[in-house]
């Protein structure tokens, strides 16, 4: 092209040709959805303490089990991805999103068999979270050990 010659010229030219990412709307949606999931989690936590007479640790376990089940269940019936479309980070960051990131590939790759499909690919999305989550906690643990 005569008018555009280099990669940089093209990148500068297309900048204002891009549709606007609806950043503010996405942030508000993520806040509402993520907040709602957390409020629901808190509700589960408080109720298991009150009605099941559990201590804090056990109540947290019950809360997590229920949230993971709901995330996995909504993924399996094809609802979670529709929530994710609107909620964005709001439904990825809470533990329900973690359940989604494991159940979705497990469902997807079942067709390639239980060993090389489900077994090998199940953590294709959640793997990075586990690797870096665990690594970060080890580092924080070491820092805590020396500076507590």
């Amino acid at each position: 092209m005569k008018s555009i010659k280099t990669d940089k010229e093209y990148k500068d030219y297309v900048k204002d040709k891009q549709p606007k990412q609806t950043l503010l709307k996405n942030c508000i949606n993520a806040f509402i959805w993520g907040g709602s999931i957390c409020i629901f989690g808190q509700l589960l936590f408080d109720m298991s303490k009150k009605h099941l007479e559990l201590n804090e640790k056990d109540a947290a376990t019950v809360q997590i089990i229920i949230l993971i089940f709901i995330g996995a269940f909504l993924t399996s019936v094809g609802i979670y991805d529709k929530i994710g479309k609107h909620a964005g980070a709001g439904s990825i960051v809470p533990i329900t999103g973690f359940a989604n990131s494991i159940v979705a590939p497990a469902m997807e790759y079942k067709k390639e068999g239980y060993v090389m499909g489900v077994g090998a690919k199940m953590f294709s999305l959640a793997g990075p979270v586990l690797v870096y989550g665990t690594s970060a906690s080890v580092i924080v643990g070491i820092i805590y050990y020396f500076f507590k």
Partner: peptide, 13 residues
């Protein structure tokens, strides 16, 4: 891209 049921947002482009 990613598995069909994963709840990620698609870009406007």
């Amino acid at each position: 891209r990613s598995p069909l049921e994963s709840g990620v947002q698609r870009k406007m482009t």
